[in-house]
Design a protein around this nucleic acid. Structure first.
Lengths: 252, 252
DNA sequence: TTGATATAATGATATAACAATTAGATCATT
DNA sequence: AATGATCTAATTGTTATATCATTATATCAA
């Protein structure tokens, strides 16, 4: 990296902010990452060093680093031996970002609910095909935990969510997990809807069946059961608008 | 927003950076957005105003704004009547962010390709169910455009991608559109793969069939054809690794 | 009415300084 | 020698002040 790489006199027609010095630094680090010149854990340098290398002020470097940090490209640590390093991937950042865009774009709850059914049923099908022994252990453990809190609506709901996530993770597709997480926050934003005892028992039974199907590799039955399960949850969570999705039935 | 909302003396056990003043400002704006107190287009204020409101320096405000901007929550404009506003959703920027995270996380091409097939086949199915007359017009128009550039690999590829996007948009589910877009350029960053004449003709025929099925509401056939179509594209684009996805067949 | 110009608001960048945090070195004590 | 306290240097976090570049609006002249 060298200051000579910075274009201090960009074409006049270009927007200002896109060509800011800070953004040029961001672009350079990004490109170095995709070119394989930088990888997770690599030290980029301290703010002072970078300011000297690029021949810009610390403020400008900070702007760039803040952007890179928010993108999840770098991690910043304070103190001695601190500084900026290439981050390890964290897909949760992306899920958060996508969730924000849903909010800003005015995507409705129904659209998201429909997508949840799509993603989660697919994940269930894949889980039945690809689950490892470790996945099964995890699912079994979560089932046990849930069985202990059947009378505690809040904790049971939480345990149930963990179970659902564990199923998706058992699919073996991290891209799918990332998309799933981006949709997850929507259903229970208020943490309000709580499962009463009888409802919890029913959900627990379904979870047990799902576990068996996934264990036995019964992909299509597992998928169908998950679709029914989620539709049932939707009915409980959104009783006021129990009409079918405006888009008609989703798959199957 | 008021400076009294900033916690200047956080618990000593908490990590430093998470409690930085700048990050507290970020959190406040974010929460205001999700609480509905702020919406797209709302003016947050200028750096100077915000610095006064929060009783912090301009630099600190800038740090926060830069983060919010990278998150896609705000848009910043320079000049008179400039300042920071809550952004409109922009999903296209995210493929970049997602591609970076996939890269850093070591997510494989296969996981991404599988996910693309899931999203796109589902979108096709929904399009056959929910497409409007306007959607059909758009699709028809794009078909016509593609037919004119069968001999121009680059333009045909571009037209084809537009057609695929239009199908997804015809699904009527913006969350699905968002997820589609987020995966879209992850693998083909430069629109590199080009279709030769015979391949283009075949793709064009498939697109025509897809159009007819979507028009006639034949959801399941349309889905299956799209899966086959994408698998075919994958074979062309990734001939070296034509083995089946490590996770086994996806759905259907 | 139109077009050029001045003005004021705003972000972008620079410089200097101090505060808070952190890892590692140093040193005293047992 | 081991241990714990303390010091030190490096680094990010924050503040203050100033200047430059950009941009919408107002003003004014033709």
């Amino acid at each position: 990296m060298d200051k000579s790489l910075l274009n201090r006199t960009p074409p006049s027609w270009a927007p200002v902010r896109a060509n800011s010095v800070a953004n040029q630094i961001v672009a350079q680090v990004r490109e170095a990452l995709f070119a394989g010149k930088l990888g997770p854990g690599d030290l980029i340098g301290s703010e002072k060093e970078l300011a000297r290398q690029f021949d810009v002020s610390r403020i400008t470097v900070r702007d760039a680093l803040r952007t890179l940090e928010t993108m999840g490209i770098v991690e910043i640590r304070v103190g001695a031996t601190g500084g900026t390093r290439i981050a390890n991937g964290n897909l949760d950042h992306f899920s958060d970002a996508l969730a924000i865009q849903f909010k800003l774009s005015g995507v409705t709850e129904y659209e998201i609910l429909d997508m949840q059914i799509v993603i989660e049923s697919t994940g269930t099908e894949l889980a039945a095909q690809n689950r490892t022994e470790k996945d099964l252990e995890r699912l079994s453990q979560l089932l046990d935990e849930a069985s202990l809190v059947l009378d505690n609506p809040e904790e049971f709901t939480q345990a149930g969510q963990k179970f659902h996530l564990a199923i998706i993770e058992a699919s073996g597709n991290r891209a799918l997990v990332a998309q799933f997480k981006s949709l997850r926050h929507v259903i229970w934003p208020r943490g309000a809807k709580r499962a009463k005892r009888e409802i919890a028992e029913h959900a627990y039974e379904v979870h047990q069946k799902l576990f068996t199907m996934i264990k036995e590799g019964e992909a299509e039955p597992a998928r169908k059961l998950m679709v029914a399960h989620l539709s049932s949850i939707r009915t409980i969570a959104f009783p006021e608008n129990n009409k079918q999705s405006s888009n008609g039935p989703i798959c199957c």
